[in-house]
């Protein structure tokens, strides 16, 4: 009982080096705008770079494999969910829409792979955003604890 209370108390205490003094939503918004940018702003430059490259390449390969950026059709709930998932890729999604990419070609042999890559890119970035929230609120360790040097000025 006492041990459980101590654990709960420890969870509520922000870890050393966390960014509890700033607004966690800011880091989440940065992560939504550009995958990994929230982590970079939190001083985890290496981690942010891994997310940027991984999610970026997933999205680019998805487009290259004739994957489709699904429209938001309320009449087709699964299509709607797929479209929302793809939106999670942030800047990549916006750029692809602006460039007129992602029309999709269902006759292409890689069409299913393509949209699977696009959906996973968006969903993965949503996990990354939640991770940025945990770091910013102190629920996860600091950059130093993760083996990364914090950004200058942090």
């Amino acid at each position: 009982m006492v041990e459980a209370g101590a654990r709960a108390s420890a969870r509520q205490q922000p870890r050393a080096g966390s960014r509890e003094d700033s607004n966690p939503l800011l880091y989440c918004a940065l992560g939504l705008a550009v995958p990994g940018l929230g982590h970079i702003a939190l001083g985890r430059r290496g981690t942010g770079a891994v997310f940027l490259v991984s999610i970026g390449l997933l999205f680019v390969f998805g487009i290259g494999m004739d994957g489709e950026l699904f429209p938001f059709e309320a009449a087709a709930p699964l299509t709607l969910l797929a479209g929302v998932a793809e939106m999670g890729a942030g800047a990549f999604y916006v750029a692809a829409r602006m460039l007129g990419l992602g029309a999709g070609n269902p006759e292409a042999p890689t069409y299913e792979y393509g949209y699977a890559f696009l959906i996973v890119a968006g969903l993965l970035n949503m996990l990354v955003i939640l991770d940025a929230w945990d770091i910013a609120t102190g629920a996860k360790g600091s950059a130093e604890e993760a083996g990364e040097a914090p950004s200058p000025g942090r």
Partner: peptide
């Protein structure tokens, strides 16, 4: 692109992202 190549590409891109989410420290 073959099924296997797509699988390997997917695994190669997703694995490091999961690793960064689930583990601390580069090793």
């Amino acid at each position: 692109m073959s099924h296997f190549a797509a699988l390997v590409l997917f695994a190669a891109l997703v694995s490091p992202a999961f690793a960064c989410l689930m583990r601390e420290g580069w090793a």
